[in-house]
Nucleic acid binder design. Structure first.
Length: 571
RNA sequence: UGGGGCGUCGCCAAGCGGUAAGGCACGGGCCUUUGGAGCCCGCAUUCGGAGGUUCGAAUCCUCCCGCCCCAGCCA
């Protein structure tokens, strides 16, 4: 009662930052940055880094920059930078006027390189790429020094200037830092600082034909921007001594780099290289395919930025490589969608129902609640009539024990409408059930029986005469295994692509109010899941919905537990 | 048999010498006009393993085992 609330646990990075604030480091100033390379698209793994960097800055009264690490002109494009900015804004973050490019620092970097040469800390090397590799040594053997390592400073200066002037061909020379060819850390074995690339850059055009490597650029870029905490993923831990070396040689502002484990998700693949292969193999339609873990794909699928943000808050932050269960992401999604999505009725696999005792030609508007989680969402009218569609999976002629939906002779409730009793299943010449003959109880309008009798199930429905047709795309996990890389000898992650990851349903029947749905409108199709209008393929009169995520489905779990049984057709 | 990291419940993750938080998943119950939502309960005598220090160890020491990263003129 009177004991003060214990401080909620914070992650190790925030702990370091809080400590730095207390000790007054940098005068308490906090500055972070998100440093993407403008190639490829952002995915949910990047979202973790974005939420961390922008989140930390916001929490501690600091600032977060957006900086494009555009040091490799052969791989980068302006259009990717645009897509990345759009994705970050969509996620809900704002870098205001702090948009930077590593390429803005090329001139400064060049001057610093000259300084290192003057100080005898860098040299121009004529070795070829292959030779450099050979000279580097191995994990267990030290490397050998290049024969060009001890060139006089004046010669290095001259050569480096001529490299910049374009006198040499690609690959002919490089500038290397002179550190230690015997270091057990291979990054310190005279790393390359500049390579010759006669390639136009998306921002600097033809101004340069030598380009700084990432390792020579990153730390100084952070320094220039006065980044106090430079957060990056684990694989850069081995590079930290190199970044420290550069900063120390230059005697410039020294950010603190802290590494954390990047995100891995079950049933997903989070690497640019693999995403490209998925696209090129035709497994998915593109970067924004709703099955892709890219922010573009998730957005099109119907994910909300808020759900992704809370997911990033809940996965925690540590140095241990881990694989987060996709169920956690889906949980965060449902949590938000449940609160915010208007309910609507849609029948994906229609089964015709004729109510024999309902007057021909009559139709009545029934009151339906838009969102039981949000009274302010109000109600709407949905037309009811003699002929309806219900979900095929909601009827079974010979139901198993725990199935309590419709069956011959059984009474159920039609949501917001009436109690309905099945009298007969009508079959076609192939023996397939094509229609149900039913009766309703006029006393149960609205869904309650005056005599107090109960039913065990409530079904969604759509009036046949009023229904609007739609196409619905059902998505399942893109991979068939939790770890897509879990393949047989010589196999490939593409072998694990789920052949049923996309199921397209046409002739679905949705309630009439949906005719005007557009953009990326989100809905809960009652009893089925959350769906959104596909922002690229949907048209008025030719609606297309994407299933964002299913509702939790106890019945499906019961079926699965009891040995699978019938395939979950209706769900 | 070089260096750098990491090993706490099925999956994440707190914990930092005082006797294992929380979330997801899972199981059970209540409630319910969504088999949804909500509510309640359960779920690590044990922290990769083995020794040791200590009144007391997931936390300190030693050894061992396992996993990840590094030999791009990628980032």
């Amino acid at each position: 009662m009177s004991t003060p609330d214990p401080k909620p646990p914070i992650d190790f990075i925030r702990a370091i930052i809080e400590q730095d604030r207390e000790t007054g480091k940098h005068g308490g100033r906090i500055q972070t940055r998100f440093p993407p390379e403008p190639n490829g698209h952002l995915h949910i793994g990047h979202a973790k880094a974005i939420c961390l960097n922008f989140g930390v800055a916001a929490e501690y009264g600091g600032l977060c920059n957006l900086r494009f690490d555009d040091t490799n002109p052969v791989k980068e494009e302006a259009e990717h930078a645009e897509a990345i900015m759009r994705d970050i804004r969509w996620l809900g973050f704002d870098w205001e006027d702090r948009l930077h490019y590593a390429s803005d620092y090329f001139e400064q970097l060049y001057e610093w390189a000259v300084k290192l040469i003057r100080d005898g800390k860098a040299y121009v090397d004529d070795l070829s790429a292959e030779e450099i590799r050979e000279y580097r040594g191995t994990l267990t053997e030290p490397g050998r020094e290049s024969p060009f390592r001890d060139r006089p400073v004046e010669e290095n200066l001259d050569l480096f200037e001529r490299m910049r002037a374009g006198e040499f061909a690609d690959g002919e020379k490089v500038l290397r830092a002179k550190i230690d060819m015997a270091s057990p850390n291979l990054n310190l074995r005279d790393p390359v600082m500049y390579r010759i690339l006669h390639t136009a850059h998306h921002r600097t055009g033809d101004k340069w034909c030598i380009y700084p490597t990432y390792d020579w650029t990153h730390g100084q870029s952070d320094s220039i921007e006065r980044i106090t905490h430079s957060l990056c993923s684990l694989e850069f831990e081995n590079h930290r001594p190199l970044y420290d070396w550069y900063l120390d040689q230059l005697g410039i502002f020294h950010p603190r780099q802290i590494e954390f484990a990047r995100l891995h998700l079950s049933y997903m693949v989070l690497s640019k290289r693999k995403h490209i292969r998925l696209i090129e193999s035709g497994a998915v339609s593109g970067w924004d395919d709703p099955r892709m873990p890219t922010l573009a794909g998730l957005r099109r699928r119907g994910y909300t930025p808020g759900a992704i943000r809370t997911f990033c808050d809940r996965i925690g932050l540590a140095k241990r490589e881990s694989v987060v269960d996709i169920a956690l992401l889906e949980h965060c999604l449902r949590e938000e969608l449940n609160r915010t999505s208007p309910r609507v009725m849609a029948v994906l696999r229609p089964l015709r129902v004729v109510i024999e005792n309902y007057p021909d030609g009559k139709s009545e508007p029934l009151d339906c609640v838009n969102n039981p989680e949000d009274p302010s969402a109000g109600t709407r009218k949905v037309p009811f009539s003699k002929v309806l569609y219900i979900e095929r999976g909601d009827f079974m002629e010979d139901p198993p024990k725990k199935f309590f939906r419709l069956a011959p002779g059984r009474e159920v409730r039609l949501r917001y409408a009436y109690f309905l009793t099945c009298r007969e299943a009508v079959r076609d010449e192939n023996g397939e059930i094509v229609e149900l003959r039913c009766t309703y109880d006029p006393e149960t309008r609205g869904g309650d029986a005056p005599d107090g009798r109960k039913v065990k199930a409530t079904l969604h429905w759509v009036s046949a005469d009023h229904a609007v047709d739609a196409e619905v795309r059902l998505y399942n996990h893109l991979f068939v295994r939790e770890d897509p890389d879990d393949v047989a000898e010589g196999g490939d992650f593409l072998d694990n692509v789920n052949p049923d990851s996309l199921e397209v349903l046409t002739g679905c029947k949705v309630e009439p109010g949906l005719a005007s749905a557009k953009g990326s409108d989100r809905f809960q199709f009652e009893r089925l899941g959350y769906f959104c209008v596909d922002p690229v393929d949907s048209r008025p009169g030719a609606l297309v919905f994407n299933r964002t995520v299913t509702l939790r489905d106890t019945w499906a779990r019961i079926q699965k537990a009891s040995g699978g049984g019938t395939k979950t057709r209706g769900r």
